[in-house]
Design a protein around this nucleic acid. Sequence first.
DNA 1: TGAAATAATGACAACGTTGTCAAAACTAGG
DNA 2: CCTAGTTTTGACAACGTTGTCATTATTTCA
Lengths: 356, 356
Amino acid sequence: MNSQATPHPQPKPKAPTIFDVAKLAGVSIKTVSRVINLESNVRPSTREKVEAAVEALDYRPNAAARVLSGKRFYVIGLIYENPNEFSYMQKVLNGALKACEAGGYTLLLLPLTLPNPDLIDDVQRFVSQSRLDGVVLPAPLGDFSEIQRLLNELEIPFARITPKTGAEDDLSVQCHDEQASFDVTQFLIEQGHRRLGFIKGDPIHGATEHRYRGYIRALQVAGIGLRSEFVRDGMFSFESGKTAARALLDLREPPTAIVASNDDMAAGTIFEARERGLSIPGDLSVVGFDDTPIASHIWPPLTTVRQPIVEMAESVTSLLIRKLKGEQVEPLDQPFACHVVTRASTGERAVQDDLE
Amino acid sequence: MNSQATPHPQPKPKAPTIFDVAKLAGVSIKTVSRVINLESNVRPSTREKVEAAVEALDYRPNAAARVLSGKRFYVIGLIYENPNEFSYMQKVLNGALKACEAGGYTLLLLPLTLPNPDLIDDVQRFVSQSRLDGVVLPAPLGDFSEIQRLLNELEIPFARITPKTGAEDDLSVQCHDEQASFDVTQFLIEQGHRRLGFIKGDPIHGATEHRYRGYIRALQVAGIGLRSEFVRDGMFSFESGKTAARALLDLREPPTAIVASNDDMAAGTIFEARERGLSIPGDLSVVGFDDTPIASHIWPPLTTVRQPIVEMAESVTSLLIRKLKGEQVEPLDQPFACHVVTRASTGERAVQDDLE
DNA sequence: TGAAATAATGACAACGTTGTCAAAACTAGG
DNA sequence: CCTAGTTTTGACAACGTTGTCATTATTTCA
């Protein structure tokens, strides 16, 4: 295993340090430190000299020395539920990674399995062992008050991706979940559907409530009464969608369209419908939420709602980083917009069958 | 934003340092250092004293100081292709994370988009900026010789997850891809199928070749001739599977079963078949590879091959860590086993239609 | 023009560990 | 019991940065 005593012709050029930069720029190391940390009270001409030297040497501050000396770790933790269907988390991960790279931070991962009786201990251990400056909490963890309380106690700033907004200085991003649900329901109504089923998501997710509200509002606006037998509980899983769909399709007067609170449950719905020999969208229109890969890979492909998850994650992470850098940050004033992606799982309802 | 000059009643208890441990144990800091780094030449009685002190204070070495002082970074990079379908990478991620946690290492992520003309530059930058000790390369990056060459030049050890084994001291894990493909093909043959289509994967992946070979071997063993019109190229994507299936089903004498080199392409095959009104498995049996979530979420659910990806990733990462710690590590002598997961997309072929 | 206020810069300690090398404590052999 | 060799331990520098505080340069104002 490389036991050959290979002579090193070039003894591996050592990375330049702050001293090298200081010498080249003709200033003290402290001044270099000020420039690279964007501190004030540096004469523009000095700044330029230092920047030129940094450039010339391709200098990068040594992260370890920085951490050891300073009070920051330049590390952000991403704590998430490790799901079966990773496409949401993949997007969150990509967005957070992007923001961290831009801000010079490192992203550390803590996947959790829920339900977890040791949740708080696990988070506690992660946060203290990994020496984090801040934490990003995607849904549904962002809604867990225990975690928020713990992080507040430890005085660790955090940012959440969740439909539920919190206190004044709370860092979180939302998207127009309620509106999207309204839009997709209205879309079905415009296609002539009057008997509209709804499958709720896992109540632990804030989005569940919002999506349900959008459905209700669309019914109200269209003057369609809410029928409780058309609303079923689900858990965001394929199986739960299948079960809920079974109940809906077993009704004496089943819905002609079903709004499932995510794509997995919509896939379950389609699965159940096909097992019964129903044609989609001929006999039943189905819509989902999230535009996960499965939405376009089942037959028929799903009409669904796409959210800008990557952008949301990136945005909230960079907000967190700016807060960590001491900037005064305002919470985002506007939720991100979602939009309906129309595919083959929905279609016109020829007969106005609600008048029978 | 917390502008209230809140007095700190408990001024945040500082974490214990190696000095605290040394004092409590009645030894020098160097001896403590020896104990926590498992160095030799420490008297057992001394070791115990130190371990007790570490325990009592709940001491954890400061990572930054360690890095700054020593020659290691305690960081492993995971470089991967950022795919549409993340389920393979999710498993790799989980396995690598687990091994890193066990070994006291931190895992850093570099997602890449392929094809990427700046591939080498991106990797180069990541490796040098992030100060890594080692790198894990899941498929297909593990087969990219440019990356291997770069890492060798930089003298950064790496471990690969790929079916292709390399040099003697190469660190990599395999699973029995060829055997699994053989098994699943044989399974179809046992069900009476004689006209067996095959959809190849992306040639950039080592698995593509191995899976194809297993198919061929199963045909040979069964005494079935290889018909070139039954073998189609694919790219592991849903679309490419759909296209290949179209070609196969357009044949005057189409196959009665199709082996797709992954689940996405199998889903595409099912999609295409259903569009033509074919019944599955009545008219056509379909199998996939990988047991991704989609395999169980389409209708009918897919017979597929499950690989122990999490274990493979964990195992190869911990091998890498042991190598980094200076241990003499032997490459794994045995590939991991895969197994066939039987679901509803395959069925008996009643008529022996190859004799017509 | 001079004094006071402010801005810019620098000297040096501190951060918590590991590496180097020397010293001390043991062990074995005569 | 002494000596040489070996094992165990410790003192201290080094790692590369930021924080603190003192010093110097510049600006402002009377």
